[in-house]
Write a protein that binds this DNA or RNA. Structure first.
Lengths: 299, 299
DNA sequence: TTTTTGTATGAGTAAAATTAATGGAATGCT
DNA sequence: AGCATTCCATTAATTTTACTCATACAAAAA
């Protein structure tokens, strides 16, 4: 009764803003689409669109159906693609979700050998998810989730792929630059730069500042690593990032890494997968590559 | 291209075991179904079924499509139902997921006034989920999740609905019955009865035994609360359950509740919902009912 | 007003889905 | 083995559905 085509219709009409435009988009005549819309409404028994003059507005039911369409259609399209891949032999696609901003740099280093090793597998990386990375994994929106926060859920497996130390990045002439490690109090007068994520997902708070009940003077969020470190180098603030990441930038910018607290803040990155994908060879291979990746050692 | 009908076909053929049976089930002739199957395979470009004699077996691609069908069809059916509800006025349905075995008894007490208050809303309770309760919530398999373990995820909201104390249940003539509280060591010689869930989800372990590195003599799992408490009453073991639940059974069975540790084990029950359902009045109303439910006081 | 743009509808048509009829192939029974 | 039975595939006929064309109608724009 409710067919895929109907979902495409309500989506297209909304996206294109008018029946005529949607009809073109769907490679149909305006008449055909109009017929379909009327039959859909009759079938359901309630209007989906309010015709206000030549303006179309969604009813509550229409709004609901649009949501459903936006959620289900991508899944159907993905299923179709996978089937096509089955047909074409061992093609495949690996959709990676990232919940760890700085990991992007690291990921690139894994992806390139992977692409070489699996020429028939496409890789896609996504970073924004309606229900978070875990939701995306459960919704089949992605196949692999890279995250510092593993979740143990039936049907999912998380495994650690590498360990790193989260360090404070300061300009190389900063007072902290030559210290063995920083104390939370050292940040009291500083501006802290971070990616725009919730505070409880920032280790510099959860593992360093909060336990000592210290807050930095200011806190600014910045989207990209490059800009963030440019800002640090020019004395506008300090940031907390993985040591291996800072090490790379040290060559280009006057930066120094300082341990947070005497023991440092040690972290792990996990990759999560659905158990139902256990049989997918290239997914397994990707995780192996990630696990065996050797980070540039401290020199 | 890949239509809902195709999903129903692969599901029905698998469920019914034969094309003929599936055809009847779908109210089609065997011929029609056979045609559809062949066209589907042609459209995709790969076989979905292996014809071994008169036996049908799924290919890898077929297996994949079956999984997809099992996941997507219920969602489409639910969407259809919701639309029908829109058409019929303010009808609705509330699908509750439970991740908390003993809560079932409590839930019943909320459901009955709810049904009275919202005569046009149907309630359904589910307890088994492929990807756990959280996955079910994200997958639109349920609308509300009752759980002792809240998850903070974008797009979801968890809120506490009541507090309770988890206590040890022992036969009323048991040595522990008159003690102020039990020590972990007291369980060393006992048989512990619990619901069949992972050990790390049993508070008696995580909050009582594990910290003291104590294990009970034996551990048996039992599905139902009634039988479990019958077993306890007849001296076959001890169990850990909410105090309010034990109190009810005390009237019928010779049982006693004992605090776990000097401080007791305090727990909360949360309900989780999708933020996109925020506008659904009856869902809000259910949570209000749950939150305001007054537990029988300690007498 | 006239023109333009967007939508709805009825009738005819092309295409797709379904059925009926039939034959072949595997399985079970005697 | 022989026969009946069950199950699936195929062809041709039929019904149903989706689509287009032509056209009428309504709201903006000129």
């Amino acid at each position: 009764m409710l067919e895929r085509h109907h979902l495409k219709v309500i989506q297209a009409v909304h996206q294109q803003g008018s029946v005529t435009a949607a009809a073109n988009h769907l490679h149909l005549t305006q008449s055909a689409l109009s017929h379909t819309m009327r039959k859909l409404e009759q079938g359901i028994g309630t209007p989906l669109w309010l015709r206000e003059g030549r303006q179309l507005r969604l009813t509550q039911a229409g709004e609901f159906l649009l949501n459903t369409a936006n959620r289900l259609l991508p899944q159907m399209e993905h299923a179709e693609n996978r089937l096509r891949q089955f047909a074409e032999g061992e093609r495949g696609s690996l959709r990676i979700g990232m919940e760890c901003h700085p990991c992007y740099q690291w990921l690139l280093k894994i992806v390139s050998p992977f692409l070489a090793q699996w020429p028939s597998v496409d890789v896609d990386v996504k970073q924004k998810f309606q229900f978070g990375g875990l939701g995306a994994l459960l919704d089949f929106e992605i196949d692999l989730l890279v995250t510092p926060d593993p979740f143990y859920r039936p049907g999912l497996t998380f495994e650690p792929v590498f360990d790193y130390e989260q360090v404070l990045v300061v300009p190389s002439e900063h007072a902290l630059a030559n210290r063995d490690y920083a104390q939370p109090e050292d940040l009291r007068g500083e501006t802290l730069l971070s990616y725009p994520v919730a505070l409880d997902r920032l280790d510099v708070y959860t593992h360093f500042l909060n336990p000592a009940a210290v807050a930095p003077r200011r806190h600014k969020t910045i989207e990209t690593t490059d800009i963030m470190l440019q800002m640090v180098a020019s004395g506008r603030g300090v940031a907390a990032l993985p040591r291996w990441l800072v090490r790379e930038y040290c060559e280009k910018l006057p930066l120094a890494a300082v341990r947070m607290g005497a023991g440092g803040v040690d972290k792990q990155i996990f990759v999560g997968t659905r158990d139902s994908d256990k049989g997918t060879e290239y997914l397994r291979a990707f995780i192996e590559l990630a696990r065996n990746y050797e980070h540039p050692e401290v020199t």
